[in-house]
Structure formats: C-alpha cells, structure tokens
C-alpha cells in the first residue's frame, strides 16, 4: 500500500495524468470547506440581524463619506482613462484598460500554513479558467490553478512555488517576484546591485509571461540590501493585497491564454 501511495505521489507531482480528477477533487474539498465555514457565516448573519440602529447609522455615514471620496476619484479616473486611451492611440499600442471582472467569495483556506492556497466559490459554470488572476481591493492576490464545477482553487503570490513577472511602477524596470512562504513577503530575484530600486517603490504586474493582466499593483518594496560582495541585491517586498484578510475577491477576465 505504501508503494502505491508513493507511485500516486510521484504521478501527482511529476505528471499531469491526474489533472481531470484534480478538478473534481477541488469540488469535494470545497464542500468540506463550505461546511466548516458555516459557523462563521451564521455569526455574520447574526451580526447583521442584531445590529443596533446607532451602529447601522454610524456605518451608513462612514460608507457615505467613503463613497463621496471614491466618487471624486472616479471623476478623475474617467478623464485619466480617456487621456490614457488617447495617448495609447498616439503610440499605436493595444488597449489594456477595462477588464471584465467577476465577484467571488472566499470559502476556504488551505489548512497547512505552508501551502498558500485558497478556495473561491466560483467555478467552471461561471466561466472561470485556469490561470485566471484573482485580485482584491488593493492588489493582485494570485492565480487560479484548479477549476471545479462550482469552485476553484487559487494559488497565492506568496506560495513557495509561485513567481510572477513584475515591473517597478516608477521606471518600468522588469523583475521577477517570488513567494517565499510568508504571507507578508515576496522576494525579488536577480536585482543587480546598481539597479534603480528603492524602498517604497510600487511593483505592478508587467503582463509578461502572459498569465497576469498588466498594471495591477502587486507589492511595495520594503527592504533593499546591497551587499557588494554578492552579485545581486536582496530585495524584499510586501504584497499589496490583504492576503489573509480579504473575503470578497475579484476574478479578472483577461483573454485566456491560447485563445488570442
């Protein structure tokens, strides 16, 4: 039996024979996650039902003022995007703004703290495809790796097996950001010691590698350590997305790879 398990493990890791079955497994797993999430849901429900009037009013006011601020930004955004389209036309480059999105809810998190995967409640029936990007309100979160019928599994940026192409928003330098297994850290690889990169720089997805849509904020550089004795500087960035907080997330419909 142990030998069979080993064979299964090796096939799982080194071949794609299990891929169709893995998608079904996603759904099975999601149902368990869903059940284990029920008490939390009940709490949310009770919280909404039994909220005091004063608190509701306070929350309403807060939301209203936030809406005002965001509306003002949206006004700017409209003129900026018009300008952007205009400039892009001048440059003869393809359009990149305006992706379609789908709102999804997180229903489960991988139980092992070393594996940074989450399960969301949208699947094949909603048009989700493998490789699709997941974002939250503040930045890129990860990519879909398995698609079940009604749920899908998302690999987060910070997983130890994940890396993505980014660029510095300030000057467009292209880099690779790798997950190291900590929710608050990405390591930027192969940054030469003379590279123009500073603490506080915003890293955005570059769209190279054709997985992620370009231009989504990924991380902010928090540490640049130049050691002249080594060939590369050590750069650590903090993901913009709230990887362990966001409950409502967005799946971005870019053009699926291979369909262009």
């Amino acid at each position: 039996m142990a030998t069979i398990s080993l064979i299964v493990a090796f096939i799982y890791v080194y071949s794609d024979w299990f891929d169709p079955v893995k998608d079904i497994a996603t759904d099975i797993s999601a149902s368990f996650h869903w059940v284990s999430g029920l008490p939390g849901k009940a709490e949310d429900w009770a919280d909404q039902r039994f909220m005091s009037r004063a608190r509701l009013k306070q929350e309403n006011d807060a939301l209203r003022s936030e809406l005002l601020v965001l509306k003002r930004k949206a006004q700017q955004m409209a003129s900026l995007s018009a300008e952007n389209v205009h400039l892009r036309q001048l440059l003869n480059s393809a359009h990149t703004l305006a992706d379609k999105v789908l709102i999804a809810e997180l229903i489960g998190v991988a139980p092992d703290p070393n594996i940074h995967k989450v399960i969301v409640n949208k699947g094949e029936f909603d048009g989700v495809y493998a490789g699709q990007a997941l974002v939250d309100a503040s930045g890129l979160m990860g990519q879909v790796v398995r698609v079940g019928k009604l749920s899908s599994e998302v690999l987060l940026l910070t997983d130890i097996t994940h890396a993505l192409p980014v660029q510095i928003n300030r000057n467009g330098v292209r880099l690779i950001a790798e997950g190291v297994g900590s929710l608050y850290e990405l390591v930027v690889r192969h940054v030469s010691n003379t590279e123009d990169i500073r603490e506080g720089d915003l890293l955005v997805s570059s769209g190279l590698g054709r997985r992620f849509p370009a231009g989504y904020p990924v991380a902010e550089v928090v540490e640049v350590k130049v050691n002249p004795g080594k060939s590369f500087a050590r750069v650590i960035a903090r993901p913009k997305a709230q990887l362990n907080r966001s409950r409502h997330v967005l799946l971005v419909f870019d053009t699926p790879p291979g369909k262009e």
Binding site: S5, Y12, F18, D112
Partner: peptide
C-alpha cells in the same frame, strides 16, 4: 481502510496525493 482515509484527506486538504495515504 487507512489508505483510503489518507487519500481522501489528501484530496480534501489539497496535499500531494499519497502523502497522508502513505
């Protein structure tokens, strides 16, 4: 039985298949 239980745990937890089974 142990093997089957382990395999289902791998499925549900999203582990490499065969880890718990073995």
């Amino acid at each position: 039985y142990a093997w089957l239980i382990g395999l289902s745990q791998d499925l549900i937890e999203g582990y490499v298949w065969g880890a718990h089974a073995m």
